[in-house]
């Protein structure tokens, strides 16, 4: 019990020390009961991250890193700092075999709904890794598409926020940050939408966008966002007027 609390405190301190801006999910309730419940939830998640789930899901850390920082070389996405509702949606999609990836389907199959919610809360509170810098210089076409769009495809930043760092708050639940994800990972997602292999997402928006992208555009825009700094480096101020 003591180690669990120590961990929770350490985690909170860690977040406070790293976060340049308060991440939307890190709003800490003043209610002590709520706090204890959250500590328990985080401890549950941490066990699964480090050692896997009792039902047999692999430890998340193996592929996504202990801090949820991902593995660029292996094209494992970072989960740290992604909005909890977005993570829950994805884990449910894997669980229902609606999103296509054999490893993640097998893993999500061995997670209960409450484990999914706990894991999403856990990762959403971590600070995303800073971006390592581009290995390949992104083609100009990628930046053009990201910032201005093309024809029926709106600028990606319209929905994914400045630099692809998300729009914060309730909007990030629908529109995840995409900055700093591995290029190969991003490319695979966009190809999946093009081929009807990933659920179309909130109100079918991303499915519709993905359908319009050419293979050349997908490659260019994936390289562009892979090279963008994550939320850990640059804050965004969003206001509902």
């Amino acid at each position: 019990m003591r180690s669990m609390l120590a961990f929770a405190v350490g985690l909170l301190l860690g977040v406070a020390a790293h976060a340049a801006v308060p991440l939307q999910a890190s709003k800490v309730s003043v209610s002590e009961a709520g706090q204890l419940e959250r500590d328990a939830q985080i401890e549950l998640a941490r066990q699964i991250v480090m050692h896997g789930s009792p039902q047999g899901a692999h430890s998340c850390a193996t592929c996504h890193g202990e801090e949820g920082q991902g593995k660029t070389k292996a094209a494992f996405p970072h989960l740290a700092g992604l909005p909890a509702p977005y993570l829950i949606r994805q884990l449910r999609h894997f669980n229902q075999m609606a999103r296509d990836n054999p490893s993640m389907q097998a893993i999500a199959h061995n997670l209960s709904e409450s484990q999914i919610v706990a894991l999403a809360a856990y990762f959403s509170r971590l600070v995303p890794p800073p971006v390592m810098g581009a290995t390949v210089h992104p083609p100009a076409l990628g930046e053009q598409l990201a910032l201005h769009g093309s024809g029926a495809v709106p600028a990606c930043v319209t929905c994914h926020g400045p630099g692809g760092r998300g729009l914060g708050g309730a909007l990030s639940a629908a529109f995840p940050p995409i900055a700093g994800q591995p290029a190969v990972y991003l490319e695979r997602q966009l190809v999946a939408w093009r081929n009807d292999k990933r659920p179309v997402g909130p109100d079918g928006l991303m499915g519709a966008v993905g359908k319009h992208l050419t293979v050349e555009q997908i490659r260019a825009v994936s390289l562009y966002f892979a090279a963008q700094p994550t939320l850990s480096n640059v804050p965004t101020a969003v206001v509902r007027p």
Binding site: P162, T236, A237, R240, P241
Partner: peptide
């Protein structure tokens, strides 16, 4: 409320 969104002002 129809008022849209401001980002970085």
């Amino acid at each position: 409320d129809g008022q849209g969104l401001l980002v970085d002002g």
